[in-house]
Amino acid sequence: MTASLFIRRLATVARISEWWGYKFAPIMAICFASILLLNSPIWMLGGQLLLLLLALTVAATYVSLLNDWTDRTDDAQAGKSNRLAYTSARRVAWLLGTCVVAGVGFGWYFWRTSPLIAGLYLGTWVVFSAYSLPPVRLKGRALAGVLADAAGAHFFPQMTGIMLMSASLHQTLPPLWVGAVGIWSLACGMRNIIWHQLSDATNDAEAGMRTFVTRLGATNARRIVEFIVFPIECIALLVLLSLSSRVAAGLAMLLYAGLVLIRHYRWRMKLTIVQPQPHSHVLLNEYYEAFLPLALLLAAWWQRPAEGLVLVGFGLLFGPTLWRTVRLFGRAAWWVTRRGLPSGQ
């Protein structure tokens, strides 16, 4: 097997396409905002940002492999496909072991930088191991499972990122900023895992999984997100935008809101907070993944031409995610332009 073929197969079983842009672009956005909050150029921390991406990629690959491997029985009972269903235990053990060894290496580097950063990075590994592995297996323990997934996929990676930026600059982030990032990331993570559980509720019920949704019911779970979790997420986001004092972030929110309205009135797309629906889009996800990071980088580039290197690098790394949003925004802008032309032109 060639190296390129092995990498492609590993990317498939690790589900990289499912979490790369969706989870890592928002982490980069908050790191950019944190650096700018400390009045420092982003390009100076380009190496640390790449290191963070590599470290989180190793952790996310471990999580994806472990989750699929421990879900084989449940997926078989529900008639659901599993990427590792026919993979030998020896190969899975080798892949997981490789991830652990690489993770220890990153953890050692983070420890030398700051024990706090190492502890936050370790948090992702610990909570997701407890999430998937018996006898703990928090995945089937309702609220504990939701909190574990949200912490492992959002809270700990986001906190690792901002603390690494702070330590690299030898500056301290405002406590309110750190607290707002923590609350926002945890709420955002809870909303996303409950969305996933709602979309997979039938399979989980057939497999006898006691998830948050199967235990409380879809309606109750949706209401908790809509009336408690999502408002907390929005309040924390507003605090972050206020503290950042970046006009670009606010303008990006206005552009995103315009896109949401055009989607609703022109393309009849449904706006959803948490409930999966056909022909719909999840509120704020594109803002986190594309609008916010691009706005921050473009504004930074306007002030410091050297930031163009980071902008290009971000575009190369997250091209597919950004292209989908840019193309959609272009279609919306074209429709607005055409609609605004006088009749007969």
Rank of each mutant, 00 (worst) to 15 (best):
G308T: 04
L317I: 14
L292M: 14
Y265G: 01
L298P: 02
A299Y: 06
A290M: 03
A306C: 05
L298F: 14
Q275T: 06
P320D: 08
R304C: 14
W301C: 11
E286H: 12
V260C: 12
T272W: 03
F314C: 07
R266S: 08
G315I: 09
H281A: 10
G313R: 12
R263Y: 12
V310A: 13
L261C: 08
L298V: 14
L292T: 02
R268C: 01
V310R: 01
I262D: 06
P293G: 05
G313Y: 13
E289P: 02
R304Q: 15
L309H: 11
L271S: 01
L316T: 05
Q277K: 11
L311I: 01
Q303G: 01
L317A: 14
A306D: 13
Y288E: 03
V282C: 05
L298K: 05
V282T: 09
R263W: 12
I262M: 07
M269Y: 09
L316A: 13
S280T: 07
A300Y: 10
L297R: 04
S280P: 03
L317H: 10
V312W: 11
L294D: 09
L294R: 05
H281G: 09
E289N: 05
K270A: 10
L309R: 13
P276D: 10
L294P: 01
G319M: 08
F291V: 03
N285I: 08
L309F: 15
L271T: 07
R268L: 03
L297Q: 06
G308M: 04
G308E: 01
E286Q: 13
L283V: 13
P276A: 00
W267D: 10
S280F: 07
L292F: 13
H281Q: 14
Q303L: 02
